[in-house]
Amino acid sequence: MTEYKLVVVGAGGVGKSALTIQLIQNHFVDEYDPTIEDSYRKQVVIDGETCLLDILDTAGQEEYSAMRDQYMRTGEGFLCVFAINNTKSFEDIHHYREQIKRVKDSEDVPMVLVGNKCDLPSRTVDTKQAQDLARSYGIPFIETSAKTRQGVDDAFYTLVREIRKHKEKMSKDGKKKKKKSKTKCVIM
């Protein structure tokens, strides 16, 4: 069974824990209790493949930012979460993405942009803004509501699919490099 290491990042209060708990335990946590770091595991079937999701729910508070490099190193894919009623959390996505790329030393890291709290009427981040940002990053965008469960499975499952595509691409690139290195030079 394939294991996928997913990391949920975003500013404090955007609903990272609520999304994760909704996926794992099928219930909505409405009281806000700032996370330092929590880890969850769940076995699911995605596109006919049974897999184990190892999900790291991270601290959004700035005082825990020193811990970010460590979990970013171990993560295979990242859910970059903002709240649709919090423009600052949307603007912060850029910083999370840049930090992930720096730590992973790669421009090509599996990510999904997630606009959470889409059940709320007080939207300050337009869907088109988020779609445009995701398009500019070359990553999928999904709106979710941890409260109603809308888009929750889709967000995590899409990230797994992005990781699969990335692994497939990397193995193809690896095979191309191996083929090239088999060419021999004969000096007579």
Rank of each mutant, 00 (worst) to 15 (best):
S39R: 15
K5N: 08
H95D: 14
C51V: 12
Q43W: 03
R41A: 04
P121D: 13
E31P: 11
S136P: 15
I142P: 07
Q150I: 14
M72R: 08
V109E: 02
S106N: 09
D105R: 06
N86E: 13
H27A: 10
K128V: 05
T50Q: 15
R41M: 03
A155N: 02
Q129Y: 14
G75T: 04
D57A: 00
R73S: 09
T58A: 03
S122K: 10
I55V: 14
M170F: 11
V125R: 08
K5M: 09
T158I: 09
K175I: 12
A18G: 09
V81E: 13
S39W: 02
G10C: 06
Y40V: 00
G12D: 13
V152Y: 11
K167D: 06
Y71M: 05
K178M: 12
G75F: 09
L6P: 03
S106H: 11
Q131N: 10
I21Y: 02
G10L: 01
S17F: 00
V9Q: 04
I36M: 01
E76V: 12
E162T: 12
F82H: 11
L159R: 01
V112Y: 11
V152P: 10
D47F: 14
A59V: 00
N85D: 05
K167P: 10
V29F: 09
L6F: 06
L23I: 11
N26T: 08
G13T: 10
S181H: 02
T50R: 11
K176S: 11
L56P: 00
T74A: 10
L56K: 02
Q25E: 05
Q70P: 09
Y64N: 02
M111Q: 03
G77K: 02
I139G: 12
F156K: 03
R97K: 15
Q61W: 02
L6S: 15
P34S: 03
R73K: 08
H166L: 07
D119W: 03
D38C: 00
I46E: 15
Q61L: 09
H95Y: 07
L159M: 12
V125P: 11
C80A: 06
K176I: 02
K104N: 15
S65F: 09
V152S: 10
I36V: 02
G75A: 12
F78C: 02
K104L: 06
Y32C: 02
I46N: 11
Y4F: 11
C185S: 15
V7S: 12
K101D: 12
S122T: 11
Q129D: 14
T20C: 03
H95R: 13
Y64G: 01
G12Y: 09
D153A: 08
K101E: 15
I24L: 05
L159G: 04
E3W: 06
F28L: 01
Q61N: 15
T35I: 00
I21V: 15
R164G: 07
K42S: 07
C80I: 10
A130S: 06
A83H: 10
G48H: 09
M72S: 09
I55L: 07
I36E: 00
A59R: 00
D38G: 00
I46T: 10
V114P: 01
A18E: 00
R68K: 05
P110R: 02
L52F: 11
L159A: 04
L133W: 13
V125D: 10
E3T: 09
I100G: 02
A66M: 12
I55G: 01
H27V: 05
K184A: 07
F82L: 09
A146S: 02
F82W: 09
G48W: 05
D153Q: 09
E98I: 01
K169E: 08
G13D: 10
K101C: 13
H166A: 08
L159P: 01
Y40P: 00
T35E: 00
Q70F: 07
N116F: 00
L53H: 04
D47K: 14
D38Y: 01
V81L: 11
T58S: 09
T124A: 09
Y40K: 00
D126E: 06
T183F: 02
G13P: 14
G13M: 12
V29N: 10
P121A: 11
D126A: 07
P34E: 03
R123K: 11
A130D: 12
F28E: 01
M72F: 05
Q131Y: 05
E49M: 14
I55F: 05
L133Q: 07
S65H: 07
D57F: 00
D33V: 01
D132I: 05
H166I: 08
K88L: 14
T124S: 10
P34R: 02
R68P: 03
K101G: 10
P34V: 02
G77Y: 05
G10T: 01
A18I: 04
Q131R: 09
K88I: 09
P34D: 00
Q25V: 04
D57M: 00
L53E: 06
F141N: 10
L120Y: 15
A11E: 14
T127E: 06
E49H: 14
G10Y: 01
L159S: 02
M72Y: 07
P34L: 01
D57Y: 00
V8K: 02
A134R: 09
K184L: 02
E98S: 04
L19N: 15
T158G: 06
Y32T: 01
V7N: 05
Q25K: 03
M67W: 13
F82V: 13
I100V: 14
R123T: 11
K167S: 06
V8P: 01
G15H: 01
H166S: 07
K16A: 01
V152W: 13
Q25R: 04
I187K: 14
V114Y: 02
H27G: 08
S17Y: 01
K101I: 06
Y32F: 01
R123P: 08
A11S: 10
Q25A: 04
I100P: 15
N116Q: 15
G77A: 13
E37R: 00
E168W: 02
A66F: 15
G75P: 04
A18M: 11
I46G: 11
K182D: 05
I100D: 03
D173S: 08
G77S: 07
L52G: 12
D119M: 14
I163R: 03
K165T: 15
V29G: 04
L56N: 01
E31Q: 14
D119A: 15
M111G: 01
Q99G: 03
L56C: 03
V112H: 01
Y137S: 14
Q25T: 07
V7T: 07
D108Q: 07
V109M: 03
T158D: 03
K177V: 11
T124W: 07
F28T: 01
G13Y: 09
Q129L: 06
I139E: 15
G60I: 00
K42N: 08
R123S: 11
N26R: 10
G77N: 02
Y4A: 11
S106F: 10
G60E: 00
L23D: 03
R164P: 06
D30S: 13
I36P: 00
C118N: 08
L113G: 02
K172V: 04
V9M: 11
N85Y: 10
K128Q: 07
E162R: 09
Q131L: 07
L56Q: 01
T20S: 05
F78I: 04
T50D: 12
D69M: 10
V160L: 08
V160A: 06
T127W: 05
S181Y: 15
A83N: 15
S122V: 08
K42H: 04
A83I: 04
E162D: 05
P121F: 09
P110M: 03
L52H: 10
G151C: 06
R68G: 06
K175F: 11
C51R: 09
T20R: 00
D69S: 08
L52Q: 14
K165N: 07
Q43P: 10
T35N: 00
T127F: 06
D108V: 07
R161P: 01
G77M: 05
A83T: 15
V160F: 10
E76A: 07
L19H: 13
S122W: 07
F141D: 02
I139R: 07
A155Y: 13
T35R: 00
G115F: 14
Q131M: 08
K175Q: 15
E76F: 04
I142F: 09
P121C: 12
M67D: 02
V114E: 01
Q61M: 07
V125K: 09
I46L: 11
L159V: 06
T35F: 00
G77L: 09
D126M: 07
K182V: 03
Q43I: 06
E31H: 14
Y157G: 07
A130H: 08
G75V: 04
E76H: 11
Y96A: 06
S17I: 01
N116L: 14
L79Q: 00
G15R: 01
C118H: 11
L159N: 02
V81T: 12
